[in-house]
């Protein structure tokens, strides 16, 4: 939709701060590009430690997204479609990790799932499963931090979806499970995909909860953001290269969201 512009000059009172804001957002990214060691870029990217961190990041972020979908979509459905007592409270609690400092999340996870934790001790003695400081721990930390993004996105899509399609399905003999599977889910697919992409990006960038709960072991729990932070102290150029990779991934995600999911009705 295009609108006829309001007549008159664009006020500098708005243009000036807008410009400053834009520069502030773009300049650091430009700095990253300017200072990047372009000649040795390919070489540095091929270093086993970098590849290892990249692989670990992609695998854990994807697994975390899968877990978020598995549990988050039903949770969003419950919040959007079933009126149960305490629904508002549950919705508030679900979104807590969104505003919680990730480090606090990591500490909380450690208290519950750590070796001496409420659930962790039981897991350890009964099944011999230990989660902290393992790759599984990374996935859990990322899932914890990223799930609210998925739940909020999917719940929004569910609330915006036309309920009458579900009614039409019911008159055709569809059970609620069939309605969810064959009508609701396809109708909100764009919202689910957008949520999953946001969720994946959040998991990929996860730092605080991961380093607290899963530690920083190369090849096991050292994801890209952790590798960037570590490299910055010892080998700043490597940190720039790793950052560039994360920047590239973010840009690709943003572009894909924009073209396919954000602008389509």
């Amino acid at each position: 939709m295009t609108r006829a512009p309001v007549a008159g000059r664009v006020p500098w009172m708005l243009v000036l701060p807008a410009g400053v804001g834009m520069v502030f957002l773009v300049l650091p990214l430009a700095g990253l590009l300017v200072r990047a060691p372009w000649p040795t870029l390919a070489e540095r990217l091929a270093e086993p430690q970098v590849l290892e961190a990249l692989r670990l990041s992609l695998v854990t972020a994807t697994l975390a997204t899968a877990l978020c979908l598995l549990f988050g979509v039903p949770l969003a459905w419950l919040l959007a479609r079933v009126a149960f007592p305490g629904r508002r409270l549950v919705r508030a609690l679900v979104t807590v990790p969104l505003v919680l400092p990730p480090v606090v999340g990591g500490v909380a996870l450690l208290l519950v799932l750590g070796r001496r934790g409420l659930v962790g001790e039981w897991l350890d003695t009964t099944f011999g499963i230990t989660l902290p400081f393992t790759t599984a721990g990374v996935v859990i930390a990322e899932t914890f931090v990223a799930m609210p993004f998925l739940v909020i996105s999917v719940e929004g899509a569910l609330r915006a979806a036309d309920l009458r399609f579900e009614e039409a399905a019911a008159t055709l003999g569809a059970s609620r499970w069939t309605i969810f599977r064959r009508v609701t889910l396809p109708l909100i697919a764009p919202g689910v995909v957008a949520g999953a992409v946001l969720c994946w990006a959040r998991a990929l960038g996860e730092f605080g909860a991961t380093i607290t709960f899963a530690g920083n072991f190369p090849g096991q729990t050292q994801t890209m953001p952790l590798a960037v932070y570590l490299a910055l102290e010892t080998e700043p150029e490597a940190a720039i290269v790793l950052s560039l990779v994360l920047l590239a991934v973010s840009v690709v995600i943003l572009a894909s969201l924009r073209d396919r999911w954000v602008n389509t009705p």
């Binding site: 039409a168 008159t171 003999g173 569809a174």
Partner: peptide, 11 residues
């Protein structure tokens, strides 16, 4: 329940 009724509906 709606899905158990022997009905057809045109909206």
């Amino acid at each position: 329940a709606a899905e158990r009724r022997p009905i057809g509906m045109v909206f």
